[in-house]
Amino acid sequence: MKKEVKLSFWDRLYLPAVVKGMGITIKHFFKTLFTPPSKRYTVEFPERKKDVPEWYRGLHRLNTHEDGSVKCVACYCCATACPADAIFIEAEDIDDLDSEYPVEKRPKQFIIDLHRCIFCGFCQEACPKDAIVLTNEYEITQLSREQGLIPLEELVKTPKKKMD
């Protein structure tokens, strides 16, 4: 829909609007300046960080066993549940059939596309092995699309969720 807006001469000067906007900014600047830091709404990120609640859903982590091997068995449950098609898994045979309790299967590749992910947490709900979890990690900006593809090697390194 197109709407014609007729600007008056006063509007087309633009300057009054700029001055008005600056006024609001300057008002808030001084207001914050004279409030003690503990009462301010803003946080000086990244020098200071805010604690997010426990249920916050941030960057994914793949949990590991004590011996460092990844818990994920590449069952594709998370990829199936994912509404954004953000998870890509390629399974691999471990050939550990001689061991007493063979695991048989693990992910060869496990990639999460953070630019597709909507942080719904369905993957974590679907996982039968408690392998994938969403952590409190929220500093997850990248400079390119490619950097948003987080591989298996990175996912196991995501810090565990901070529990109070």
Partner: peptide, 8 residues
């Protein structure tokens, strides 16, 4: 072990 079973 349905998660790793191919019949699943």
């Amino acid at each position: 072990d349905c998660p790793i079973c191919d019949k699943s």
